[in-house]
């Protein structure tokens, strides 16, 4: 078990959020739509992985484009600033999270998929509840970033042993016992170190335990988005479903069962489009 000082020291050893992401988050949090397209193009053009992702998305069926788009400038104009920032952030956080969550027993890519699933849910909820959609998207994308710190200090099988012996308390309580801080608090510390806007820091900190009297719906939205991602089967490690859905937050959001399940279905369809239509009823499709 690691004392708090060791856990916090692990934060220093983690890779920083790419500078381009920090600049894009500032733009989005500041209203996104007013961001200068040339600034965004310049930021995106410096990152090969992001450029490739932008071109892929611009040429995807989702945007219903006719004819291939080869240049970044065209792609950016077609997608718009907001979509562009999102693609850049998805790509860069996905790189950071690809191998994260090992100590929770997560397979490669599971945490980045869960990050994106939560971000899609947060966007839908923010639209319904009048929260800032861009900030909700980013906060949900980064909500589990603190799991990188837990990975750095947890010994092999440590979390699996804790989970196997757990009673009915939320998993965060066990993380605090074992490491002096839970992944939500550690994630908020990381976001603070990266100088991200305070509302993002607060939403990451409260994504499992939202405050009781929030001034803004943002943390409730990110909290619900996290639960929705779990119900969509995303990011489930040895901690499983050992996180409650805060009843007061649910009441504040006025979230019905049907509305929630429709978002769960949307999230999975957006994350795993390759399954769409793969499970059609008979006749069986044969390849040979």
């Amino acid at each position: 078990m690691a004392p708090l000082n060791d856990t916090i020291a692990a934060l220093d050893r983690l890779p920083a959020l790419p500078a381009t992401s920090m600049r894009l988050i500032s733009m989005l949090a500041g209203g996104g739509r007013d961001a200068d397209l040339r600034d965004v193009e310049c930021i995106v053009g410096h990152d090969e992985a992001v450029t490739a992702a932008v071109l892929r998305r611009a040429n995807s069926a989702a945007f219903g484009m006719r004819g291939r788009i080869a240049g970044l400038g065209d792609a950016i104009r077609r997608l718009g600033t907001r979509e562009l920032c999102r693609i850049a952030l998805e790509t860069q956080t996905s790189g950071m999270l690809a191998n994260a969550g090992r100590s929770y027993g997560l397979r490669r890519g599971a945490l980045s998929q869960s990050a994106l699933g939560g971000a899609i849910a947060a966007d839908q909820l923010a639209r319904l509840h009048g929260a800032n959609r861009e900030v909700a998207f980013v906060a949900a994308l980064l909500r589990d970033i603190g799991k990188l710190a837990i990975d750095a200090v947890a010994g092999p099988d440590a979390l699996e042993r804790i989970a196997a012996a757990a009673d009915t308390r939320p998993f965060l309580a066990y993380e605090r016992e074992a490491f002096g801080a839970d992944h939500a608090a550690l994630g908020a510390m990381l976001c603070e170190r990266w100088s991200l806007p305070s509302e993002i820091v607060g939403a990451v900190r409260g994504h499992h335990e939202p405050p009781s009297n929030p001034a803004e719906p943002l943390t409730d939205v990110v909290h619900a988005a996290d639960c929705i991602a779990r119900w969509a089967g995303l990011g489930l490690g040895c901690d499983g479903l050992m996180y409650p859905f805060d009843a007061a937050a649910r009441e504040r959001l006025g979230l019905s069962r049907d509305a929630l399940e429709a978002i769960v279905a949307d999230v999975l369809a957006a994350i795993a489009p390759d399954h769409t239509a793969a499970n059609s009823p008979l006749p069986l499709r044969r390849t040979a």
């Binding site: 119900w231 859905f245 009843a247």
Partner: peptide, 9 residues
Amino acid sequence: EVLADDGHF
């Protein structure tokens, strides 16, 4: 089941 689901979902 999500921990402490009070029967809502």
